[in-house]
Simulated assay, not measured.
Amino acid sequence: MEYTKHGNSVEGYITFNLYFHSFDYKEDSLLEQVKFTTVKELFNMMQPDYIEQLKHENDAEQVELHDITFSTKDDDTEVFITMYDNSGHYRVSTNLDVSRLDSEYKETLQGIKEILDKKM
């Protein structure tokens, strides 16, 4: 996959959870998703200075890292990996060539029929 061959060209999203306190002191939160296109951008977004800047720009009480999603594509196969604090979700999608499926299915059925004809 591209991110193992060229680590600098990986892209994805980093999601922060912004926490706010409402007037009745109940905790409210908002997810803020930021796209990165290089590993360097990702590492810069994970630095305490960036998180403090995000906190001040949004007038948030607290900012936490929610998840990081990496995506890459190699020909017709696309991979998404999302990492959370204690778990991960992985999804691989690919285009399958099913143009010959009907003919292969018919050939298989004809083969089964020939076997049955010979045995009966």
Rank of each mutant, 00 (worst) to 15 (best):
E52I: 06
Y25V: 00
L30G: 01
L65M: 07
N58Y: 12
H6Q: 12
I81Q: 01
N8G: 05
F36V: 03
N8A: 08
V63G: 01
D28Q: 15
F43S: 07
K118W: 04
L31E: 08
V63H: 02
V98S: 04
S93Q: 15
E61H: 06
T69E: 14
F23P: 03
L42N: 03
F20T: 01
D59S: 12
K118H: 10
K55P: 01
Y13I: 10
E61V: 11
T38L: 03
L96R: 10
S103M: 12
L42R: 05
S22H: 08
T108E: 07
L101C: 04
E2R: 13
A60R: 04
G7H: 04
G88K: 09
Q62L: 14
T72R: 05
D24H: 08
T15I: 07
F43Y: 09
Q53A: 08
N58Q: 07
F36Y: 11
I115E: 11
V98R: 12
F36C: 02
E64V: 05
I51E: 04
F20I: 02
G12E: 04
G12F: 07
L31M: 09
V79A: 03
G111T: 08
T69H: 01
S99I: 08
T4S: 13
Y19E: 09
E107A: 14
E114C: 00
D74T: 07
M120K: 15
K73T: 11
N17I: 05
G12Y: 05
D97T: 04
D28I: 11
N95D: 09
N95M: 11
Y25M: 12
L30S: 12
G12K: 04
D85R: 08
S103K: 15
E78T: 05
L30H: 14
I68K: 01
F36E: 05
L109N: 09
K5N: 12
V79S: 03
T82E: 05
S22N: 15
S71L: 06
H6K: 14
S87R: 13
L101V: 06
D102H: 13
E52D: 12
Y90N: 04
E78W: 00
M120D: 11
A60S: 07
H6I: 12
